[in-house]
Amino acid sequence: MIWIIARREFGAMFLAPLAWVILAVIQIILGYMFLTNLDNFFLLQPQLLQLQNTPGVTDIVIAPLMQVAAIILLMVMPLLTMRSIAEEKRNRSLTLLISAPLGMTEIVLGKFFGLMLFVLVLVSMLMLMPLSLYLGTTPDGGKLLSIFLGMLLLLGAFSAIGLYLSSLTENQTIAAVGSFGILLMLWIIDWLSESVSSGQSLLAYLSLLQHHESLLEGVFDSSDIAYYLLLITAFLGLTIRQLDRERLL
């Protein structure tokens, strides 16, 4: 059942031009950045050869690329998630799902996995760039896997937050602005941690991108994974609760 809804959500995204445009724009911008990074790497290469324990091509080309990708997607994901529930509310088509023999959990998970399918396509397309390096050199496969996983988890968290905001309102713009606000806040929340001594680690822990960074470096820390999984579960739970509550109002 979850799968049926997820497939419909995924398909519906491509019925509108938005998904295509987003994929194209991100691919072009990041492709350009990839080439710039690669160029820098060639410039740096003679110096790197003289150092011991040098960072490899994955660290110099791919990790910074994905860091930028994360920031671009932070702005783009709200546009993708805004419609998922808000639009159905406005069109009153949510009734179809509610009247079908499904639980709220299945509906919300279906919507979430529909978004995740899109995320999978998006991240796979981004990963083509690092994989193309295999043509000339050998990047660190383990690190690439860690980067791939990191992107999936980060975008999963973006999707769950966006889905929740989308369930709060009928208005897609409000959903987009709201989820953008929350994502941005969760990004910059650790900026303060350098000047504030107390609660420093807490603020740093809450930051979305802080956890992403270690995965980009190829550090697979279970606390980072747990952070993302907790965040996703929490926001999906809030979404389910929100939709259930609306039946009582």
Binding site: A12, L15, A16, N91, R92, S93, L94, T95, L96, S99, A100, P101, L102, G103
Partner: peptide, 19 residues
């Protein structure tokens, strides 16, 4: 779930996907 399995419902605004 059991109850809804036995039910077909057309609301006032038909829940259609226009696209």
């Amino acid at each position: 779930r059991e109850a809804k399995r036995h039910l077909g419902y057309l609301p006032e605004h038909p829940p259609l996907y226009r696209d």
